[in-house]
Design a protein around this nucleic acid. Structure first.
Length: 198
DNA sequence: CCAGTGATTCTCT
DNA sequence: GAGAATCACTGGC
């Protein structure tokens, strides 16, 4: 289980959004397989970085491989991966993951029993994993907090999910935005049961 | 469909 | 500054 390092996140947001699909995200005792992402960059009117640096989006303009977590609609958190190289204002939103480990705790956090309804949305994923603004600006490459890895062996047993490369990627328009609506920056694993909308 | 909820940004003074 | 509008969402009709 090798942790993805800073260099993995230095590519542009659209490339990283594709490359994160099938990777495993780990935080505390929670593990999920990334099945749906969206890309945002500075020349994109739907991006928080579009209007330039501010107090809220400052970490978006910092180093690649850092978490950008923001609070929205008065009740929800969304988790993004800063990328594109230093100061580029690019990030990838994690929209959905397939629950792998810590499922019982996720159910408690979400107060929901249906496994398909635990992490199938950006704020649901944060609620299930217990991610909040505490994680804003933290490194994803130092192995101390949230991190990503290529493979995950389920307690030494054979993995219950399909191999990383065994899927097709679908690119569509993004969800929940009013600008840049035609850009095909949403990516998900074709046929996966845990995406927010198939 | 639409309300809830609060941070952020826009649009005027 | 103040008030209005907007918002990378979710859950309950």
């Amino acid at each position: 289980m090798k942790i993805l390092g800073e260099e993995f996140f230095e590519k542009d947001a659209v490339s990283l959004a594709r490359d994160l699909l099938g990777k495993y995200v780990v935080f505390g005792g929670f593990v999920g397989r990334v099945v749906e992402t969206e890309a945002y960059h500075e020349d994109d009117p739907a991006s928080h970085s579009f209007l330039g640096k501010s107090f809220r989006n400052a970490v978006m303009f910092g180093k690649s491989g850092v978490a950008y977590v923001y609070f929205i609609y008065g009740m929800h958190h969304c988790f993004n991966v800063v990328c594109g190289g230093s100061g580029r204002g690019e990030a990838v939103l994690i929209r959905a993951v397939e629950p792998i480990e810590g499922v019982d705790e996720m159910k408690k956090n979400r107060r929901v029993d249906d496994i398909k309804n635990l992490c199938n949305g950006p704020a649901k994923f944060c609620q299930a994993f217990g991610i909040s603004r505490m994680q804003n600006g933290t490194s994803l490459a130092d192995g101390k907090g949230i991190y990503f890895c290529e493979d995950f062996e389920n307690g030494g047993k054979p993995r219950t999910t399909r191999a990383n490369t065994d899927f097709e990627v679908v690119a569509t328009t993004r969800i929940g935005i009013s600008k840049g609506v035609d850009l095909p920056y949403r990516f998900y694993i074709k046929g996966n049961l845990f995406v927010s909308r198939g």
